[in-house]
Every structure is written in C-alpha cells, then in structure tokens.
Nucleic acid binder design. Sequence first.
DNA 1: GATGAATGAGATTTCATTCAT
DNA 2: TATGAATGAAATCTCATTCAT
Lengths: 197, 197, 197, 197
Amino acid sequence: MGCWTMEKQVHGKKEAIIGAALKLFTERGFYGTSTAQISREAGVATGTLFNYFSTKEDLINDLYYEVKGNLSQSLREGLGDESSFQAKIKRMWSNLIDWGVSNPQEFLFTEHFCSSPYISKLTRDEVLKEYTFFRDVVREGMEEGQMKEFPQDLIMSILFDSGKTVVRLILNSPGTQDKEQLIENSFQLIWGGLAKE
Amino acid sequence: MGCWTMEKQVHGKKEAIIGAALKLFTERGFYGTSTAQISREAGVATGTLFNYFSTKEDLINDLYYEVKGNLSQSLREGLGDESSFQAKIKRMWSNLIDWGVSNPQEFLFTEHFCSSPYISKLTRDEVLKEYTFFRDVVREGMEEGQMKEFPQDLIMSILFDSGKTVVRLILNSPGTQDKEQLIENSFQLIWGGLAKE
Amino acid sequence: MGCWTMEKQVHGKKEAIIGAALKLFTERGFYGTSTAQISREAGVATGTLFNYFSTKEDLINDLYYEVKGNLSQSLREGLGDESSFQAKIKRMWSNLIDWGVSNPQEFLFTEHFCSSPYISKLTRDEVLKEYTFFRDVVREGMEEGQMKEFPQDLIMSILFDSGKTVVRLILNSPGTQDKEQLIENSFQLIWGGLAKE
Amino acid sequence: MGCWTMEKQVHGKKEAIIGAALKLFTERGFYGTSTAQISREAGVATGTLFNYFSTKEDLINDLYYEVKGNLSQSLREGLGDESSFQAKIKRMWSNLIDWGVSNPQEFLFTEHFCSSPYISKLTRDEVLKEYTFFRDVVREGMEEGQMKEFPQDLIMSILFDSGKTVVRLILNSPGTQDKEQLIENSFQLIWGGLAKE
DNA sequence: GATGAATGAGATTTCATTCAT
DNA sequence: TATGAATGAAATCTCATTCAT
C-alpha cells in the first residue's frame, strides 16, 4: 500500500462523490438528494464527503463548475480547424448537440441548475470566463458582416438556447429521430434567419 | 360584514397564499421555501395554508395549473383577428414576450418548474390540453406550405423556446433594451429561418 | 318549528355526538379520533361539539360515566327477584355477559379506557359509587359463609374479570360458540372454586 | 475506549430509549407520549431515536416483542422441574404473578397494548409463537383428564386473565397484601373450579 | 344555539454536519 | 484520512379550540 495507491484511493473517492452527486442531483434535485445518499452511492462514509467538500452547496458548485467547463471544452473541439464563420458556428452547433446527447446527465444537470439559487454568483462568474471564446467568435462574425444586424446578445442567446432545444427534443423522443438529419435541419432553420442574404 | 365581504375575505386568503407561493417558489425553489414562510408572507397562520391546499405539492400543482392557464389565455389574445399564418405566429410571438415581461414572476416560475418532479403527470396533462390551439395553428401553416419542411416538433419547440429566450434577455438587462425593437428583430430572426423563400 | 322540536333537536345533537364518540373512540382510540371526525360522524359542525363538551377529555369522561352507569344498571336487572346468594351471583354473571355481547362497542370501550390516563380520578370515583351494590352482595355472601375464605377484593375482581374474559371469548370467535352453554360452563368453573364444599 | 466500551455505549443508547419508551408509554399511552419526551427521558438527542427505530410504531412494536418475550421466558422458569399437571399450572401461576409484581411497568405495558392498533399483526403473530408451550401444557392436562370438561380456550383465558387480575390487585393495594398468601388463595380459587373432583 | 374558517402549538421525521476513534 | 453514531434545527402537517357571524 504505497503512496501511489493511497493517492489514487483519495482521488477515486472525490471522483466517486462527484459522480454520485451528478447522477442523484440530476435525477432527484438538490433538496431531493441527501448527502447520505450521495455517500452511499459513492461507496464512502457519510463523513468522508465533508473531507472533500465543506458543505453540500460547495459540492454542487464544484460540480457545476466542472460540468460547465467540460461543455466549454467540447464546444471548442475542432473549432480551430474551421475557417469560415458559418463553419465555425456550425461546428459549435454540432458540438453542443453531440455533447448533450452523449452526456444526458450532464446536460440535464445544467438545465436544472443553470438558474438555481444554490449556484453562487462567484461560481457563475467563474464559469462565464470559459465562454468568452463564444462571444469572440460571434463578434468576429458580426464585424465581418456575415449576419443580419441583430444585437449580439440576441444572437448568442438564440444560438445557445436553440441548440439546447434540439438536444431536449432528441432526448425526449429516444430512438425516433434521425439525429444527424435533425442537426442539419435545425442548423438551417437558425442559420437561415441569421445569415445575410 | 355582508355576504360579499365574507366571500372576499375567503378568496383573499387563498389568493394571498397563491401569490406568496409564486413569489417564494420562484425566488428560492420548492424545497428552499418552507410552508411557514409562505404563510408568513401571505399573512395567514401556518395551519390556514392547509385549509386550502392539503399538501405543499398540491399547492405548487395548483399554482402551476393557474400560471400555465394564464399564459395560454394570453397567447391567444387577439389571435382570432389575424388571418395570415405569419400574422398569427407574430401575434403569438408578441403575446408570449409581452406576457413574460409583464409577469416576470410567473414567467420565471414556469421556467423553474416546467420540468420539475413536484408537478404531477396529471397536472401536466391537464395543462397540455390548453395548448392544443398552438399545435393546430402550426399544423395548419405546415399544410398550407407556408414554411420550409421541418419536423413539426422542431418548429414548435424552437418557436416557444426562442420566445422565452427573448423574454429572459429583456428581464436580465432591465431598461437597456428597446422591447418593441427586440420583438421585431427576434421575430425576423426566427421567421427568416422558418418561412419558405 | 316549535319549542318541542327545538329541544328535541338539541338533545339529538348531544346524543349524536356521544354516539359518534363511542363508535370512533372504540375503533380508533382517543388520540386516533379527532374532534372533527366525531363532529362529521355526528352530523354537526366542528364548533357544535364544544357547545356541549368544553374539551375532548370532558367528552370522553362523560361518555365513560354514561357507559359504566349503563353497565351498572344492566348488572342489577332482575337482581331483586333472586333470593339465594348463588342465584344472585349467577344473575349478575349472566347480566354482565349478556350486556357485553349485546353491546360490544360499549364493552370494548370500557376495556380500552378502564385504565386510561384520559379518564380523571373524579370520574372514576363517581363511577365507583354505582357499584356499591356489587360489593354489598358479595359481603353479604361472605358473612353468610357461602364461600370459602378468600379476601373480598380477590373475589370481586375474579368474578368481574372472569366475566369479561368470557365476553371477550365470545366476541372474538363470532358464531362458533354456544353462548348459553359457555355462560353455564364458565359460571360453574368460577363458582366451583368459590363455593364452600 | 476499547471495543467493549464502544459496544456498551451503543447498547446503552438503544436500551435507554427502550427503557424510557416503556416507562412513558405505560404512564401516558402511545399518542400521549411524544418521541421528544422519550428522547429526553433517555438522555439522547431527538434524532438519535430514529437511528435505532425508523418509526415511533417500530419502537413500540420492538418494545412489545421484547416485553412479551420476557414474560414468556419467565412463565417457563422451572417448568421442566415439575411433573404433575397441577404443579405445572401452579408453577406458571406463580411465575406470572411474580413477573407482574416484579416488573410492574412491563406488566402494565402489556395490559395497555395487548389489543392496541399500534401493534402490527406481524408482531402479534411473532409473539404468539412464544406461547405455544402454554397451549401444549393445557392440552396435555385435558387429554389426561385432569380437569372438568371445559373448552380449552375458556380454560386458557381464565387462567391467564385471572392471574393478571391477581397482579393488578397486588399492584393496586401496595403493601397491604401478603403476596404469597394471595398467590396461594387465588390459585386454590381457580384450581378448585377447574380440577376434576 | 349552530356554524366552520382561522389559529398556532406541537408532533414526527429528516438531514447536513461534527467529532471521537 | 476515513468512519459513522450522534446531534438538533427545521420541515410538513394535524388538530383541539375559538369566535365572528
């Protein structure tokens, strides 16, 4: 039982707790999930949770930060390979939908807790920093005159929220939808309203 | 002290409770709000709440039904006066945004609790019946060939969710936005992607 | 609606409340029965109960007094017609069992509440006065040397409790017992141990 | 601070709760006793009670099972040493009375809750299994023709209930009765009616 | 006297958090 | 660091009782 094992053990516990929290918070909500349930699901003692997170709110804030960072990473995947504005938007569009469909628990978690009182302003601000790249891409497109003249906030919100709408649509009608086709359709719908010409 | 006064008194209490619940549930969530807080905010005794609603869950279900019915009514306002498909959609679009901006508490309440486990399937089904008119309008438009060929669910979801996006945008940046202009802009954005041609 | 009707109405209500209380207290116990339930069962308003009984405890004490008085009356029925000591005891024995079997609700009520904290010492003492005749009969028998020499308390308790045992036996095995035969048997059993010779 | 101490500590709390519950349930009844009172009397926190018993009803069922098991044990004490039928009955008779007088709280508890709705059918059935020995002894005596011909149920009920009557008599007149003499007397009374000849 | 809405104290139970081991 | 028994504040809901009509 060397140092390596111990450290792994430790990391394993924290991760197990985060994983359990993600699952249970998503399924039953914040107040619907007790720290005892999280501990049990994670396979640790009730006290152990508080060695890693000083309060239950701390835990959900950490989780929120992690999941949102995760999404931010996924959104940027392959973004550097795209050159045209449309291609960049399209790439983020698919990335968002792919992420949501592949990580339904994470997706639903962000849905449930994006406007929750348990997530602190601090966490929210910290998270926002990870999304400046999105603002940059859109601003660039506006400056290049690639889009009709809409307020930037409107564009960003519509893009993000509509993408989430599509994810929800897919998750709610499992199996019955052709995902790729839907991504294509929905992108055309939004892009059609956005693009100049 | 007549009959009229009595009835008013009675209605006053129930309405006060509903109003307090709307405010507090929206601000702090379901579990974050105690029935004692609701009673205090409503200016009644703790027991009085349970004379009108046998359970806390009963209360939120009633509230949900009322608020959603309210929205449904507002969406239909003046709808009969419109003849063209575009005008109908536009009318509902403005109605939705007007309602959300004029009733921010109700709007945020629906946002928080639209996919909540506290709202029963029964309530949800009951509410859905009030929205068939929306489905009918959209279907009609599709059959008349007024829109590009997208799945009906996609159209409905994008319309509704994008409208809500705009409301959120206005509520989050108070004073700084020209509401009418934003309604116009946003409608063009969505309609531009939707309409044939 | 003359005076007679009104008075009858009033008496009817009090009796209805007593009747409902007897039924419900016996079935569900004192704390298991709310005054609201009693009122509903009696067909009166919740407030009406408190026009007749100032507290719930008052009600059960009244009820106790009434039921025990009732039993006392029944025990004495035909007692004056008997001359021998054995006949007197036998008469009370049958009276007790008949009463219990014919009034199971009253019988079970006395069983449940004979040693209850809700019945006040005052009530209990008041009730005891109705049973001096029993003590007198037994004392007389002792003085006449009709029984073996046992303490009077023991005799009285055994007589009364064994009678109740028989009632319970009959009530618990409905239909399967020959009541008259059982009364005869049980009396022989007790009298056999009691009588001199 | 060793293992022994820990175990004792743990057992101590559970036992303290059981003891407090026995005392208070007996004195004030089930609904008349709050779990908070039990906890206070036991010297533990309100939550601790629910670490050991998931419900107040659970607690009283456990208690019932324990007390009745206890009595069953006591009834059988020395029973194997007796050979004649009369001696066996006499032995159980004294055992019952001794137990009741030495454990008045337990005795009164069984009196109050023997026909209580809080005790589940399951518990009751479980308890009954502990009393088959009594039925066996009586049946044996009947088959050997040691008693007059009475129904077995009558015999068993009279025996058990009359024993309890004697306990009550002793408990209600503290100090004034000669216990051993009373046991002797009362046994003669019952046995005199029961025995053949 | 009859009514029943209103009251608020009190009951059971949960659960985040602590701390001795 | 890990554990889990112990804690006690807080939550939902009940119900005896009051009182204006």
